[in-house]
Write a protein that binds this DNA or RNA. Structure first.
Lengths: 243, 243
DNA sequence: CCTTGACAGATAATCGATTATTTGGATAGT
DNA sequence: ACTATCCAAATAATCGATTATCTGTCAAGG
């Protein structure tokens, strides 16, 4: 929470940040939020499971105050739920939930992209091309988890950059949240791309359409991209079991 | 947080609740969240102002833990912002912010209404008609603040009910948040309806179109309704000063 | 006169201990 | 056996005190 200050819903997670010094999160609460977020999105903390404060306190070696602080932020992220006197639990996953996320991404991420194309400046274009390049140059090898993590990070960055020109902080906040939720499904259920897709090419097409301001084309490509991912995830979800 | 349990983004503020006993919020944190929310939406806590934890602690006569707890929830509501080591502040208002809220309501709320009409059952229809009736039977007299508060509550209830049939908890969460933000502008800047509008009739037309499943008509009416409110607020905002 | 650094007061973050609530299991009554 | 009631352990919520960070002010140096 260091960089931005343009009103409500400023980006809450640090961008690339070509790190000088002091770049990381400051308070224990913030650090915890990051660690917990990663633990949830990676599936280390199982979806739907209860979060025992005392155990978590010992696991992370912190006191209750920052722990609650961190959890509170994940509630804003949609990754954790809370009930008075009953504590916290990791948000459950379900087919219905996945489908809602996909549907909403198709609606709102596409809307945000359209607005970005309408309003974005040259710097936005540059950021898009950079994010695309970095993503496509990164290998994704199911055998090496660290490449998966890296790829996820860049993929997230790419999608956020794509819509970052829309000039609508609240909308960006919503999209970020949906991406969080979506990424968890992918991290857990999808370690490799389905054979009939060329995801790199999909990303390229969207980005090129975007900087060329070909509104309908880019929006359509993005919508299909999201939709395909949703379909793949749905298949893996029903196959691999959880219902 | 007593009633619902259907996964992520369950409604977080108690519905009518034809109160037996024990109906209110349980923990101090919850109660504080309610009081603070009201204080912010009513304008009692000025937009953009810093929230001094120590003063707030004394004002509300509570300890820091529940205070932070309550504030954390308002962050999820978009009414409060936070920055590490700098504390909390009431989200600022601005023309740009108002316009974004209006735009997003037009997109999201209309989409949610369409889905409600597509998926809602008879009970939903009944709820809509009830909410409409209760709203239209409630007088709104600028001279008596308590009628304004009551009207706001029912108005909010009406809009939420309208979209409550959409079967999309996350979407409902977004809409609730946008309504919160929007209501603050109205409470602060608009104590009476502009002369050329018949708001009751607008509400009736939307509701009737909705239960008749006249998708295009109802959506169009709702969009216009939201848009008109946005325009009115914009005028009052620029007139009454803050820029 | 402007900039830099050090100090002090204000404010936020964290801790450890205490209090309140919930939950599961044992017990008594039917 | 079956339900209802009561206890105790587990867990969440809150508190008061302590520690860390920030912010503004003032003095020294340029």
């Amino acid at each position: 929470m260091v960089q931005d200050d343009d009103g409500a819903f400023a980006p809450e997670d640090a961008p690339p940040s070509s790190g000088f010094l002091d770049d990381g999160k400051n308070t224990i609460g913030s650090q915890l939020a990051s660690r917990l977020r990663e633990a949830i999105i990676s599936g280390e903390l199982q979806a739907g499971s209860k979060i025992n404060l005392d155990k978590a306190r010992k696991t992370f070696n912190v006191s209750l105050s920052p722990l609650r602080e961190g959890l509170a932020r994940l509630i804003s992220d949609g990754l954790v739920e809370f009930e008075d006197n009953r504590g916290y639990r990791v948000s459950a996953i379900s087919l219905a939930n996945l489908e809602e996320i996909t549907t909403l991404r198709e609606e709102f991420e596409v809307f945000a992209l359209r607005e970005s194309m309408r309003l974005g400046d040259v710097e936005w274009e540059g950021n898009v091309m950079r994010a695309l390049h970095r993503l496509n140059r990164t290998e994704r090898d199911a055998a090496r988890p660290e490449t998966l993590e890296r790829w996820e990070e860049l993929h997230r960055e790419y999608h956020l950059t794509l819509i970052s020109g829309c000039g609508k902080p609240i909308l960006l906040h919503f999209c970020r949240l949906l991406l969080n939720l979506n990424d968890r499904y992918r991290r857990v259920f999808l370690t490799r791309t389905s054979g009939d897709r060329n995801v790199s090419q999909e990303h390229s097409e969207i980005a090129q359409g975007a900087v060329a301001r070909d509104l309908d084309y880019a929006c359509d490509m993005l919508r299909q991209h999201i939709h395909r991912t949703g379909t793949n995830l749905r298949n893996h979800l029903s196959t691999k079991g959880i219902l």
